[in-house]
Nucleic acid binder design. Structure first.
Lengths: 190, 190, 190, 190
DNA sequence: TCCTAAGCGAGACGGTACGTCAAGTCTTCTG
DNA sequence: CAGAAGACTTGACGTACCGTCTCGCTTAGGA
């Protein structure tokens, strides 16, 4: 019967978090600044989120997911699919605000492993599932050795993007492709 | 004529930093707590280090380097060398205090990319160099294809350990070995 | 057709105010606490009272008035009447909850002189009137000098009880009687 | 050996408290406002004073004491001395800032009886001592009855000023004099 | 040997942000 | 349509650390 939660306030906070992280990095975000920027009172923030990290988590889940850029229609050519995905990921991480968000996710994870693990799980799961599925598909076509651990490979590709975002390296597509080619050789049937 | 820098105070600070990070994580370390724990005045800390991150950097450089565990004598068997290295790295990262230190390094990097890049460079360089060298050695023996980018492979192995430390996963040796085996296949001459 | 003011809610608030003041002092009373204690919504309180002080005022007027204890039948013996009144006042102010209420009245007065004056006027007026009347009666009997300002004396007696309540001194009947006796000498016809 | 307490900061806070009380009343004084007005950090205030009331106490003790205006040379004429004291007190309490300070003292006392009692004791003691002494002096001269309780009389005079300040009445000198005259009659030897 | 300039502990200082509390206003639904 | 429930903005609370700034006390060189 009480007044319902203000959807507007909530969205304003999440949006402010995204902007603030993009602007100055997660570390510099303050609850007070967030509240001011969102035109919302601190109390409202504390009412709905237990921590700064939780706000970031929700903000990330609402927005585009870093490391999970739009994926195109899969084909029967595994190498081509991975190239395409990596190209898209590279484009995603070439935008400064996306690097900042990805780094914020990493900072939270390094700081609060429990929450970080939950968030990472959510973000990585889709990517890992998609890549695994592509590999299994290729295996079904007889192009991948039966003893290859598809998830381990998928995981490693996530590690690659995470590490790149962490170091803020300009995502080196050539190097990534070279790596994928090695992988392709590694998993291919002889 | 002035009194020289107190080696004792400096060591006490670095040691306090290591203990504090191991105990509560980098985020919770405060300069005040560090000073109290080390029995040193805040002024002394500010005199010698420009930031908390710098103290961590020096503390890491003085101690054992995370991700850079003791490496054994290389052999002619690349796969065996990598297995051995990964086993050692896994053991290193199975100790909670080492995970904490590695995570602190990641947190600093995610927060202050400039400083973080410098630190990571220092820590990763040796590992990358060592792995690259092993690959080149194997290539010289005719066991690795000429077009393989050794550094990209080495880099990817660092990414693997970094990502593991970040998520705090119990280091899964079996999976790591499976991945290395794929790599071996991938880089091997046909 | 509008629903009438809920007498029950109103009484619950006033009663909660009395209990809260007795328990923790006026300063610690909060509207929220009052609402919760009375099982009433804040809005209801704000609808009917303009301020915390106003609630206290109404609560005091409804309950027994501090400094205005039950007065007995007056006699022709002024000193005896005053002794009796002071005894009753002393008994009244020896109960902690009455001290608390009296102090609350003083706190309000010290804080909001306008409202405080109105309240004090209400509470003091009766006492002053009664004492003045007794003095005038005695004067009519030829026992009080014609130039004595009865109201000034009455006022002073109120000041005495107010000051005692403020300091929370155990009401010292002997001292009060001594003072009254001096007054009696002071106003008596030679 | 640490840096010594800043006398300037302390004085600035006390002065700010006096000004703030005079301007808006004790209730409206906030620590934050005090800090801002004094150009001092909140921490500095909390370091040296346990409560807002304590600051007021010290501010009052440093300044002129309300209810304890300058006292002139005593004479052998008790009535004249009391008249003079009351005149001075009336002048003191006719200045709005002094009324505000006196009311602040009362508000603190009504709110925190323990601290209030301590403060009142300090302020009232001198006045009570001085008046008592005057009465005793007059008694030594044979002008006051032996059974009169000098302290009770003195106390009552303090109650009179306190009550006047509380109600914020323009201090009515005529009425006060009338009261003193009654007292004089009351205590005089027959 | 003593002088003296810096190092050092201690901790006060002006700040910023924290997370909490209550004030007073505003919706919403229920009786 | 009054009233309970409670979300909302506002603003102060008292605390924790920040990085800077004295203090008075070592503690070496260089004189």
């Amino acid at each position: 019967m009480p007044r319902p939660r203000s959807e507007k306030a909530q969205q304003a906070v999440l949006s402010a978090m995204r902007r603030a992280v993009a602007a100055g990095g997660y570390q510099r975000v303050t609850i007070e600044g967030l509240a001011a920027e969102a035109g919302v009172s601190k109390q409202t923030i504390y009412r709905w989120w237990p921590s700064k990290a939780a706000i970031l988590g929700e903000a990330l889940l609402e927005g585009e997911i870093p490391g999970d850029p739009p994926r195109h229609e899969p084909t029967d050519d595994l190498a081509a699919d991975l190239h395409e995905w990596l190209t898209a990921a590279g484009a995603h991480l070439s935008r400064p605000e996306n690097i900042a968000l990805a780094r914020a996710l990493i900072a939270v994870t390094a700081t609060d492993p429990r929450l970080g693990a939950a968030l990472n799980d959510r973000f990585a799961r889709q990517t890992v599932a998609w890549v695994s599925e592509r590999i299994e598909h290729a295996r079904a076509l007889g192009m991948v050795r039966p003893d290859v651990d598809a998830e381990a490979i998928a995981d490693e590709i996530v590690a690659l993007t995470s590490y790149s975002a962490l170091l803020g390296r300009p995502f080196d597509a050539a190097r990534a492709f070279a790596f994928v080619d090695v992988l392709m050789h590694g998993i291919a049937t002889d």
